[in-house]
């Protein structure tokens, strides 16, 4: 049984993502929404960490939030999946609990 963790803050400004990554357990998933989508991109200071996390957990990023911010979905780190709101709903339904890292 697993948890879907939602993170909505930029990793460059707030510690929500760090805190989330410190509390995920095997089998959990993470979805990056709102300002957290910046954590899903290659070429940043958090890329290596996210690429590594994506090898251990399912990590998704909300496409509409990337597009809203002018970020290229092609630049999303390998191993991180771009989903739409329907995909977000599916992830929530597949998990047992949804934990928002507010």
């Amino acid at each position: 049984m697993s948890t879907l963790h939602t993170v909505n803050k930029s990793p460059f400004e707030r510690s929500n993502l760090d805190s989330c990554l410190g509390h995920v357990v095997a089998g959990d998933s993470i979805i990056l929404i709102e300002d957290a989508v910046y954590a899903a991109l290659s070429g940043t200071s958090v890329t290596a960490r996210m690429a590594d996390a994506a090898k251990q957990f399912r990590i998704c990023v909300l496409g509409p939030d990337l597009q809203a911010r002018g970020m290229d979905t092609g630049a999303v780190i390998d191993g991180i999946t771009v989903v739409d709101y329907g995909g977000f709903v599916d992830l929530a339904a597949e998990s047992r609990v949804v934990n928002a890292w507010l």
Binding site: N8, E34, P64, Y85, G86, V89
Partner: peptide
């Protein structure tokens, strides 16, 4: 905050999926 917009989009998508 975007919170209410995100919740609205999530609810719309969930309803479209028959939840």
């Amino acid at each position: 905050h975007q919170a209410s917009d995100s919740a609205y989009q999530f609810v719309k998508a969930a309803l479209e999926k028959g939840h």
